[in-house]
Design a binder for these strands. Structure first.
Lengths: 151, 151
DNA sequence: TTTAATTATTCAACTGTTTAACTATTAACC
DNA sequence: GGTTAATAGTTAAACAGTTGAATAATTAAA
C-alpha cells in the first residue's frame, strides 16, 4: 500500500477541491438557467430554509459585507422574488421573505439541482457516500470553528 | 444505525459543500493577502504546474470564455507576474509563462496555503483522510466525465 | 485562391465584492 | 432627559470577474 506524505495529501486536496468546485458550479449554472445566478439561487435557498431573515444574518452566513447583500437583494427584489418588510418595533431592521414567485422559482430550480446531485451521488455505494459525508461534515466543523476563532 | 434517504444525503451534500467552499475561500483570501485575488492565485498555480500554456487552455480548465482569461491575464501581466510570447510558427497563439516575480509570489503564497490546508488535514486520522480523498477523486472523475459528455 | 476555422483581443454590459460615507433608529450612560 | 454609542441598512465609487458580440490576424481547407 502506498504511504502518502502529508504534502501529497494536501496537494491532492487542493487540486481535487478546485476541480470539483469549478465543474459543479458550471453544472449548477446549467440547471438554473438564465433566471438566476448561482449566488442568487443560494440566497433563495437560505431564505426558503429559514423563512425570514435580515441582511446582517445573510452577510454573516455568506461571509461578505452587508453592502454586498444589499446589492444582491435589490436585484432579486427588482425581479419580484423577495419582499422587504420593516420591523415596526425596531424600525432599523428589514425582514426578508420570498414572494410566491420567489418560492416557485426556488422549488423549480431546486428540483433540477437535486436531480443533478442525485445522479452522481447514486453512483457510489451507500456506505461510501455516508462515510464521505461524515468526514466532509467534520471538515466543515473544523473550518467553522477556525473561522469563529479568528473573528 | 440511521438509514438515510437519498434526499437527505443530497441535502447534506449541498449544504456542506456550500459551507466548506465559502469558508475555505475566505481563509485562502486571508493567506494570500492583498497581492493577489483567489482566481489570480489559481491561475498562477496552473501556469506554474504546466510551465507554459495558452489562453484557450486556461479557458477550458477554468470553464470560462476566452475573453475572461484575457482580462485576468492582462491584470497579472500589468503586475509583472506573467510573460506573453508569440509562437513564431503559428502567429495566432500566445504562450503564457510566469516571470521570476510571478514564480516567487506563487511560491510564497503557496507555502502559506499549504500550511493552512495541512493544519486542518492533520486533525484527521490518516486512513480517514485517505479514504475521503479517494471518494473525492472518484467524484471528480464522475463530474469530469459528465462535463466532457455534455460538451 | 477564396472560404473556414482558429487564436486572441476589445468593448459594453452585467454581477458580485469592498471601503467609506451616510441615514435612521435604538441603546447606554451621566 | 439629553448627549453620545452602537446598530441596521443603504448608497456610491471602484474594482475583479464574467458573457456575448464584434474584430484582427493568421492558418487550414475546399
Amino acid at each position: 500500500m502506498c504511504e502518502k506524505s502529508i504534502k501529497d495529501l494536501v496537494d491532492l486536496y487542493i487540486h481535487v477541491s478546485f476541480s470539483v468546485n469549478k465543474i459543479a458550479e458550471g453544472l449548477i449554472k446549467e440547471q438554473i438557467g438564465s433566471d438566476l445566478t448561482n449566488d442568487q439561487h443560494y440566497t433563495l435557498r437560505y431564505i426558503n430554509k429559514v423563512g425570514t431573515c435580515t441582511s446582517t444574518e445573510l452577510a454573516e452566513v455568506f461571509d461578505v459585507k452587508k453592502s454586498a447583500i444589499t446589492a444582491i437583494i435589490t436585484r432579486m427584489w427588482e425581479k419580484g422574488l423577495i419582499q422587504r418588510t420593516r420591523d415596526e418595533n425596531d424600525r432599523r431592521v428589514v425582514y426578508l421573505n420570498l414572494t410566491e414567485k420567489g418560492e416557485e422559482l426556488f422549488l423549480k430550480t431546486e428540483e433540477r439541482i437535486h436531480a443533478l446531485v442525485e445522479s452522481f451521488i447514486t453512483q457510489f455505494d451507500q456506505t461510501e457516500i455516508v462515510q464521505f459525508l461524515k468526514t466532509y461534515e467534520k471538515l466543515n466543523e473544523i473550518l467553522t470553528e477556525r473561522k469563529s476563532r479568528v473573528e
